[in-house]
Simulated scan of single mutants.
Amino acid sequence: MTLTLKFAKFDSKLMVCPACDDEYTHVEEVQIAARGEDEMPNEITVDAVTGRVETHGNSPAPTGTVVHDGRRQRIAVTGHCESGGHNFAIVFTQHKGQTLLEVVLIDK
């Protein structure tokens, strides 16, 4: 299910959970599917808390629902909310000369 990137009504700079509007969210990981057009991706994960970087990983970056993997690279910023326990990803997918922005719920 594709959601909308949302911000608090009282502060347009405060991102809220896309599922429940919780104001207490954490973004802690960036997942990248690095690749050229229609090539196999190099899955890269950067943990913003520990500083751990993993390349050639087995966990694919989250995908959106419009073009899924797309034809080129994909960058996902993953996070969660405190109150509802929802895990989400803000996904940028490069596909046919366009960049799609999608917000999706993910399993962690």
Rank of each mutant, 00 (worst) to 15 (best):
H68A: 11
A61Q: 05
T50I: 03
E29Y: 05
S83L: 09
A89G: 11
R35K: 14
E102G: 07
T93K: 01
D21K: 07
M40P: 12
V30G: 05
E82S: 11
K108V: 10
C81R: 00
T55N: 10
Q98M: 14
V30K: 04
A34M: 14
T78E: 06
G51L: 00
G64W: 04
L100G: 05
Y24R: 05
D69F: 05
E39S: 08
I90M: 02
T2N: 06
G97K: 09
Q98C: 08
Q73M: 05
P60L: 09
K13E: 14
D107Y: 05
R71L: 09
N42Q: 15
P60W: 12
A89N: 12
N42H: 12
L100S: 01
E82P: 10
K9V: 03
H56L: 15
T63M: 09
D21Q: 05
Q73A: 08
C20V: 15
V103M: 08
D69Q: 06
P60V: 08
A61W: 03
E43D: 03
M40L: 15
L14S: 12
P60C: 15
T25H: 07
V91G: 00
T99D: 10
G84Q: 02
L5V: 01
T93R: 01
R74Y: 08
K6Q: 12
R52E: 08
E82V: 15
Q31R: 09
E28P: 04
T2K: 04
G51Y: 05
H86T: 14
T50S: 06
H26T: 14
S59H: 06
K6D: 07
G70N: 08
D47Q: 04
E102I: 09
I90W: 01
A76S: 13
R71Y: 01
N58P: 13
D38Y: 15
F10R: 06
V103L: 04
E82H: 11
V30R: 00
Q98R: 10
A48K: 00
V66R: 09
T45Q: 03
G79K: 00
V46C: 09
G97S: 08
D21F: 07
S59R: 10
H95T: 01
V103R: 00
I44H: 02
T99I: 06
G57I: 15
A33W: 02
L100W: 03
I44M: 06
K9I: 07
T78F: 02
G57V: 13
F92P: 03
C20E: 13
K108D: 07
L5G: 06
L3D: 06
Q31M: 08
R71G: 04
I106V: 02
L14A: 14
G70C: 02
T99K: 14
S83G: 12
R35F: 07
F92H: 04
H68R: 13
L105S: 04
T65N: 14
F7G: 12
I106M: 00
S59K: 11
E23H: 05
A89E: 09
I32C: 04
D38F: 08
S12R: 13
E43Q: 11
D38V: 10
T63F: 10
T25P: 10
G79R: 01
G51R: 02
E28L: 11
T25Q: 04
F7K: 11
T65M: 10
M1K: 10
V27A: 11
E82A: 13
E82D: 13
G84C: 04
V104H: 08
Q31P: 03
K9P: 03
F10P: 01
F10H: 11
T55I: 12
A8N: 07
S12A: 14
R74M: 09
H80K: 14
